[in-house]
Simulated assay, not measured.
Amino acid sequence: MRAAVSIALALLMAPAMGETLTERGAYLVGSVMVCHNCHTPRGPQGLDLSHALSGGQTFDEPAFKVTGSNITPDKDTGVGNWTDAELKRFLVSGIKPNGTKAAPIMPTEFYTVLTARDLDALAAYLRSVPPVRHETPAPEYRIALKPEVPTYAGRQASEAELSDKLARGRYLLTIAHCLECHTPEGPSAVHDFTAASGKGGRTFRGPWGESVSPNITADPATGLGNWSDDEIKRAITQGIARDGRKLKPPMAYAAYASMTPQDLDAIVAFVRTLPPKK
């Protein structure tokens, strides 16, 4: 019986039958990794998907001022002249073909866990989107930033290990870079992953006004310890808190609503294991 359950789970977590690399890449970009949140321009009505991935939000922080870059295959202003190897190296290192490094708002440290297949899928999908000519401003770096190693990142995952539900949840939570927003920053814009991973408390300002990331650890008083699975899923996919409050962006609720039920289940199962932080 145990062997049968293991086989069934492995089949459930395996790539969908007939899923192409481009389809897998579209799912990662549009749902799990929410690349549009930073790389697609935002108008009064929300994301302008007619110019998808052509450069988007500007982040004006004490440490830097950068704009989400053009990652369409436009040869002059996008990544059209990058090789697949250069694109995949950038995703996990932040290093561009010209040797410069992206600002830390690009969560490349989290992407170090991406499987070889998912890196191939991302490259394939980014090659397939319509090229848009749109030049984004050059970045401004105001202070030297220390490198970070986020919780659960730093080692490439294998497809085989993702057949385990908790391992898959950890993987998805990492490539969705949830802990980037849900961990407070200390001095010099460095996250306190050691002592406060998942504790929340970061402030985000945008067209929505101001929002503060909540505690997503298992703490029963300030975190998700007393939430049901369905309440956590509703918060992720609809932006509705346990008490019925409407949650604000930049959490990409509409994108997460398109995640598969299996992936949502895996994320919730893993979030339950985050050590409680007050």
Rank of each mutant, 00 (worst) to 15 (best):
C35T: 02
S6C: 13
G30N: 15
N37V: 06
H36G: 12
P44L: 13
M17L: 05
E19T: 07
L21A: 12
G43H: 10
C35F: 03
L11Q: 13
G43W: 08
G43D: 08
V29R: 02
V32T: 12
S31N: 15
S6P: 02
P44Q: 14
A8G: 12
T22F: 00
A26P: 09
T22I: 12
P44E: 15
L21N: 05
Y27T: 08
R24C: 05
T40I: 01
H39C: 06
C38N: 02
L21I: 05
L12W: 09
V34M: 13
L12Y: 05
S6I: 13
A4G: 12
T20K: 09
M33Y: 05
A16D: 04
V5F: 08
H36A: 14
L9Q: 08
H39I: 09
G18M: 04
G18C: 11
V32G: 00
L28E: 00
H36D: 15
A8D: 14
H36C: 09
L11A: 11
R24L: 04
L9F: 08
G30W: 06
G30A: 12
P15V: 03
L11M: 10
A8F: 11
A16C: 04
M33I: 10
V29T: 06
Q45D: 13
T40L: 03
T40Y: 00
T22H: 06
S31V: 15
T40H: 04
G43A: 10
L12R: 15
C38A: 04
P15E: 06
P41H: 02
L9E: 00
V32Q: 02
M33V: 03
A16Y: 02
I7W: 13
Y27S: 04
M13W: 10
L21T: 07
P15W: 03
I7Y: 15
L11S: 13
A16M: 03
A10K: 15
E23C: 01
L28W: 01
G18T: 11
A10H: 14
L11W: 09
G43M: 15
A4I: 15
S31Y: 11
M13S: 02
S6W: 10
L28I: 04
V34H: 07
E19N: 12
G18Y: 01
L28Q: 00
M17F: 07
G30S: 10
R42E: 00
P15N: 13
Q45N: 10
L11I: 11
M17V: 12
V32D: 00
L28A: 01
E19I: 10
R42L: 01
V5N: 14
A16H: 05
L12H: 07
C38D: 00
L21Y: 06
M17R: 11
S6H: 12
M17N: 03
M17T: 07
H36P: 15
G30Y: 10
G30K: 13
A14V: 06
A8S: 14
N37D: 11
C38Q: 03
R42N: 05
L28C: 00
N37W: 05
M33N: 00
T22C: 10
H36V: 11
G18I: 08
